[in-house]
Every structure is written in structure tokens, then in C-alpha cells.
Amino acid sequence: MYAQMIKSEKSNETPEELAAFQARIDRGERIEPKEWMPEGYRKTLIRQIGQHAHSEIVGQLPEGNWVTRAPTLERKAILLAKVQDEAGHGLYLYSACETLGVSRDELFEKLHSGAMKYSSIFNYPTLTWADMGAVGWLVDGAAIMNQVPLQRTSYGPYARAMIRICKEESFHQRQGYSVMMKMAQGTEAQKAMAQDALNRFWYPALMMFGPSDAESVHSEQNMAWKIKINSNDELRQRFVNETVPQAHYLGLTVPDENLKFNEETGNWDFSQPDWTEFFEVLKGNGPCNEERLGARRKAWDDGEWFRDGLSAYAEKSAARRAAVAAE
């Protein structure tokens, strides 16, 4: 039924091929790497999975910022394990993206040059320890909301990466909430930190679902392809509904005067985030855009001699083995 919407990007893609492809997706079949796919599907996936992968590794930075200042040995270990998981998730997603015919180094280049984006949430600073709670609880919470449906996405390697990620990530949001509970039940100073963290991260977390679907350009096609499963507004509402009672349990105030339970719809009515700010951060004008991208570029550039040194050794030792075998 959606076949007519697919605009072929390659002249040799026939309407029959496109229709057959859509039919496979409609039947719930998974598309696998070597199989025929429209060029638009492939490109959209590279953009989406690549952006997701970049978000994981840039996302290491705001939390990594507190690893060396974690207040107890156990908190330090938990936070480090969590941030390490983000690196692992980036790795899984880059691998999924590579099955579409793009190399990981190319994807890094595009991140570093600004040609590809990462989630804007990571351009916000982590200013106090309570932010480790807020990020885990709200940012991971919002991410999970997005990721759980993607376990059913149409592209096999992407769906499998998401399954692994969701399984590993189940502890991330809980650890964030556990930090928040300690803070909210702690001293006055800790409570103030917790409230401040919620104030700063609430709207950026709501922005993570993207602008309203009415304004989203690719939504319809991506939903037809099952690259996107739910609408942005639907997921945002679901997130608000889940999070508000959690905030109340902590005794914290959600920074929204218009927040109100709507008996009729069963939803919490809430204020939209400031979308002007969203687009500004996206354009590079957020609080930490330069630091985040700068840190990634530096890590990559500084690591070049290390990667090349190991490549050179591998070549030498392969040559030595070949010489021994030839004797």
C-alpha cells in the first residue's frame, strides 16, 4: 500500500522491484545485507544508524566527565561500566552500518567534519553529580523509549544490534534513578542538586524525540519502511506519562507550569520544549558542541600513530609467518 510513496533514487529501480520490496516489509520480513534494497532505504539507514552510533560515542563524554569525580568506589565502577557500555553500543551500531557498504573510518570522518550529526542532548553540560542521575534516568529513559520499538525494525543487522543494546541498557536507566533517589533523599544540598539537574535536563530530554511529526520531513516514508516504528509525538507522550510519576516519587518538581493530568485522554498534558533552541543546538550553537566534537577529533587524531603502528606490526608478522611457511 505504501509502494507509491517510494521515490526511486536510482533510474534502474523499477516500480515492480520497489513494490516487491515494500511487500516484503509489509509481510514483516527482515531485510538482510546482501539483499536488494532501494537506494533511498540504504541511504536513510546509513544516516540513521550512523547518527545513532555517533550519539553513543559522543554520549560517552558528558558522563565520562564525572568518572574521575565519582563519590564512592562503587559509584565509580558503575558509572565507568555504563559509559563503557555506550562505547560498546557505538561499536555494535557501526558494525550494523558497515553491512550497508560504508566503512567505520568513513563514518568517523563524517562525524568529525560535521557532515553527520549526533543527538543534540549530548551538547548539554553535566555540571554536578546529580546530572549522572538525571542523564541516566531521563536521557537513557528517552533513548530506551526510542530503541525498544527499533528491535522490530525492518533491517536485520540494525534490529539485532538494538536487541543486544536494549538487553545491556536495562541497567542504565535504573542506575540513574538510583543516583537520583539517593540525592533526593539526601541532604538539602543534594536535593537542590537533584532538582537543578531535573530543571536543566527535562526539556532537552523531551527534544530527544525530535520535532513534532507534522514538521518531520522523512517520517512517512520511514514508517512505511519500518525504519521508524512510532511517531515522535507518540513516544514523547509515552515518555512524559512514565516519567512524571517517577519525578513525583522522588519529591521533585517537573519544571512545567502547564503539566496536568488529563482525565479524558489519560495522558499528562505538558508544554513543548523550545524548538528554536533545539534547532540552534543542532546548528552548532549549543553549550558544548565544540568541546564534544573537539574531544572526538582529538581522540581520533592522537590515536592515529597507535592504529597505524598496530597495522604495521600485523603486516610484518604476517609477512614473517609467510616467509617461515615458504621455507
Partner: peptide
């Protein structure tokens, strides 16, 4: 099969696999 990763040779691929895919 659990996934993929990058490594300069087989020995390092095994070390990386240990670090990446057996964290739990």
C-alpha cells in the same frame, strides 16, 4: 555469532572480542 569488530590481526581480534563481547 555475536557481532563484529575491528582489529589489525587475529590475535588482537581475540583480545578485543574478550573485551567487547564478554563483558557480562
Amino acid at each position: 555469532h555475536v557481532g563484529s569488530l575491528h582489529a589489525p590481526d587475529a590475535e588482537m581480534a581475540i583480545n578485543h572480542a574478550r573485551d567487547v563481547y564478554t563483558r557480562r
